[in-house]
Design a protein around this nucleic acid. Structure first.
Lengths: 166, 166
DNA sequence: CTTTGTGCAAAGCGTTTGCACTATT
DNA sequence: AATAGTGCAAACGCTTTGCACAAAG
């Protein structure tokens, strides 16, 4: 158990950095300064983030010179490498750590936009059962519950859901 | 049972048109020609559709004069009225009938992009249990399984998932 | 007659792409 | 030296918005 990383709850034997380099090597892609800086940065601080947030935060690490295009391109690589998970919310991409983190899904508050993670074993079972029934080869799933979080429902008694507001 | 509409499997007492007019009236919004034409059109033919498809098909019903802006604005109303369900896929909005249709979720083929519907009672149960645990007031959920459908996995032995392609 | 809705074209926003330059191999 | 990656700015695709005109109430 000495050379294992515990980033969340899942044990993995390579650091995200190492895993990314391995991925790059295996595809004949280059290990560059911006790529290294980005993995470091992302796995140092972020949990869920969108590109705009990420770019803003880059200056905290003195990485303001990395261009948007490089950020977008690197994020794509990180997803392909299995380090990040991407999802779409309100028209923009949200990323979160995937490598070394356990499978989970989200509650999404429509008011404050916060994402709350939850774990459910049954979900994977349903996914597999449904996929089998349809001869579908599942590679992943996304389950998102939308509504109003505890804090927001305390604050506002009138809610903003599609069906209300007279 | 005489005045009921069966659009899918759920019995409802108003036609989509009537329901939409009721919704519009209740908000002091006007019942206009384009709005009426759009509900008619949408509930005549479509199942899942995106805005581009919808606009292309409008000419089949002689509705080519309805502008994009009106289409977008009306779709938004139809969602608020509970007639349509909106979801985002690959950066663009997909709509499907909601009113008069049973709750369901989707399998999404990454190759041919088709959406396959499935029904699962357990899913609602999980949603409610998880929400209760987090004091979250759920108003809906979206569960999408991604992968490769039967037809596509027969055709291609090499798949296109994130992790492959040398 | 008042006010909301429409159609058009322009703007907006997140993301992608072409290209000359730079850095890795 | 050869080739892949970077940064910039322009282009993109989908959606929203401002505005003058049309239509509903």
């Amino acid at each position: 158990m000495s050379n294992e990383f515990s980033l969340g709850e899942v044990q993995v034997s390579l650091s995200p950095q190492e895993r990314f380099e391995e991925y790059l090597q295996s595809r004949g892609k280059r290990i560059t300064k911006p790529r290294r800086a980005l993995v470091d940065h992302i796995f140092r601080r972020h949990d869920h983030f969108d590109v705009e947030e990420l770019i803003e935060n880059l200056s905290e690490d003195g990485l303001e010179k990395i261009g948007r295009a490089t950020v977008y391109r690197t994020l794509e690589e990180l997803v392909k490498a299995g380090l990040l998970r991407k999802m779409e919310l309100k028209g923009r991409a949200i990323y979160e750590h995937d490598y070394g983190y356990p499978q989970h899904d989200h509650l999404h508050c429509q008011i404050c936009s916060q994402l709350i993670e939850f774990h459910s074993q049954e979900l994977a079972a349903i996914r597999d059962a449904v996929s089998r029934e349809h001869n579908f080869r599942a590679t992943g799933h996304r389950f998102t519950i939308t509504g109003v979080c505890f804090e927001c429902s305390r604050k506002r008694h009138r809610q903003q859901s599609p069906h209300d507001l007279i």
